[in-house]
Structure formats: C-alpha cells, structure tokens
Nucleic acid binder design. Sequence first.
DNA 1: ATCCTCATGTAACCCGTTACATGATTAA
DNA 2: TTAATCATGTAACGGGTTACATGAGGAT
Lengths: 186, 186
Amino acid sequence: MELSPTAKVVCALIGFGKRTGYEMKQFVDKTTRYFWAASYGQIYPELRRLEEQGLVVSREDPTGGRRRTSYALTDAGREALTAWLARGDGLMFEQRCESMLKLFFSDAAPELRVDQLRSFARALEGNLAALRELQPLAPEMPEGPRLTLEFGIAQMQFMVDWCRRMESRLAADAGRPAAREEATRV
Amino acid sequence: MELSPTAKVVCALIGFGKRTGYEMKQFVDKTTRYFWAASYGQIYPELRRLEEQGLVVSREDPTGGRRRTSYALTDAGREALTAWLARGDGLMFEQRCESMLKLFFSDAAPELRVDQLRSFARALEGNLAALRELQPLAPEMPEGPRLTLEFGIAQMQFMVDWCRRMESRLAADAGRPAAREEATRV
DNA sequence: ATCCTCATGTAACCCGTTACATGATTAA
DNA sequence: TTAATCATGTAACGGGTTACATGAGGAT
C-alpha cells in the first residue's frame, strides 16, 4: 500500500496523537514546517481519502455545539505507517532557496552581493528565533521531535554563520581587488 | 514586470551565457539543482512565454543539420533581471526532507532511528561527493557560482557530521540498555 | 457588538515532474 | 550499426497554495 506524500504525514500525525485536521495543521505549522509543510487544502481531502482506503476511521466528536471530526488509525493504517518508517527509501532532501539562486547569479550585479547575504542572514535569524522559542519545551518532547528541533537550530545557526563569514570575507576582498584594479587600470 | 519563478532562472541563465534550452537544463542539473531545479517541461514553455513578453529574443542557430534555437536577453529582459537581483524579497528558504520527517516521527519505531540516520548520512555523502567533483573548477568560476558551491559543500558536510554525531550519541544511549539486554539474554 | 480562535471544507490556480515523441549527429 | 549525445518539445498527471466560504464559541 503506497502512501502519497501527504498521506504519510497525516498518518504519522494521527499516530502522534493529533486527531483533527485543524489540530494537525496547527501542529505542522509549529513544528515540521521547516522540513515538511502541509496546508488545509491537502489535509482535509487526504483524511477523506485515507478513510475510503480504510487506513483511518473518523468519529464525530463535537465540543459543545461546535462540530469536530476526530480520526484514528485502523490496523491497516498503523501497519502502513510503520512500513513507511521502516522502508529505507525516501532519503530525498530538496531545497528551494531564492537567495542562493541570486547569489549564484550575483556576478550580473556584484555590488548587491553583500546586501543579499545580509538580508538572507536576517531572514534566517527569524527562523532561528522561532525555533529557539520551542527549545524550552524540548525536555518534555519525545526524542524524535527533540532531535529534529536540535537539527533545525543547528542548521539555521550554521547558515547564519556562513552568511556572516561570507559577508566579512567579501567586505575584506572588496578593498584589495579594488586596489589591484586601480593599479593595473589607471 | 513580475517574473514567474522559472522566468527568473531562465533570464538569469541567459544572462550567464547559456543560450539554448538544452544547455540551460544541463547546466542547472550540474550546478544550481541543489537549491533550485528546473525541467525541460518548464524551460521550453517559459522561453516561449518570455519571447511573447518581449524579454528575450530567439534566433535559429543550427549546428550542421541539427536545428537549434538560441536566446538572448532584450533590454527589457536585462532590466527585469537586474531588477529581480536588486529586489530585497525572495528570501525564502524551503526544504522538503523526508528523512527529517521520519526522524520526527521515529518514536513510533525507535529501533529504526539509527538506521534512518545512517542511510540519510550516506545519501548526503553522495551529494557531497558530486559537489566535491566540481571543486577543482572553482578557481575558474565567477564569484557567484564559487560561493554557492562552497556553501553547498559546507552545508552537506554540516549535515553529514550532524547525522554521524547523532548516530553515535544514540548508539551510546543505547549502549547501556543493549548491555543490559545482553546480560539478560546471554 | 466585535473580534479572535476553533473548525471544516473546497475551487481555482500555479507549478512542476514524468514520460514520451521526434530526429539529427557523433563516437564506439 | 548501434548507442550515446545534442536538441526540442508537449500532454498528462500529481501535488500544493491561496483564497474564500461557513459557522459556532469564547473573550473584550
């Protein structure tokens, strides 16, 4: 039983104890979004599909007069989930980073390079700050989430540091080659 | 003039000296793919669209009897390109990493954690090796590509190291329970 | 009253990948 | 002559985001 990308997260989220579509989305936005995002437009239809396939069961679970639908894994669902975790595939690591793209092509406008790096670093620092806010909760977390949080922080820190290093390297280089250019050209 | 994501790369590639759709694709696969991929299905239609919009011009440029279409930026195209590079937006950094997702949810099957980490590290080492093969060309590269290559290598190295560190940390944690298991089992 | 949060959903779109078709040239 | 490479293209599909609609309950 091959799960679609979204089906994987959804099953995993149910297995993790997130029972409503709404709750799943909130949780994803707070935790996994840095390496795996999900929108309502994926979650709700996927829950339906998974129920049709018999991997989850729904149950009406209103809070007062407010309707709510809770989901739970069936045996087949639990099986599919552990099978997914056990499979050695899905090692993919994809990035889409417009800042790096701009940096790559920055020779078309070299004077903007340092600024690009600087604003990229600032943006990353925003992410870093958001992750750091979760850190106090780390001792209470299961090992999986704790490890990925730690990774996220380390990774953001690495990228910020790299940008800062490049910034100052470029700033330093800017003096000398300018001097050389001057010497040869003038 | 707001460029679509693909339009940005395509214009930048032409500005960089890549003139045919085929050449662009080869180049992207060798260089930017780690932070920005592109397929024929995007490139060729985009070139058409850009020509309609007057940002590029095409020219029939056959090699022998083999037809070929070369593209060049118009003034409007060059302007759009530098405008894009100058804009402070597009700081987005997106990742999609199934390994991290599995790690996050690994408490559903903790015994698989070390293996997951190990195979993730191996996959990353593949990327790292591919990037290292480009390194000898670095001195000949323009600064932009050289910087992003350096970033790619450092980033992959960082991730591999992180995985290895976690592997041994987890192994050490498991060491005690494992020893206990052995003691009881043998 | 008003606004925020809880909660569910969907339609329109954007975007991108895959897989295939086509055909010429060059290297083995 | 056969395979690989150069070269262009597209149709079908899958997947995801955005924006919106709806409505109840709780807080100010």
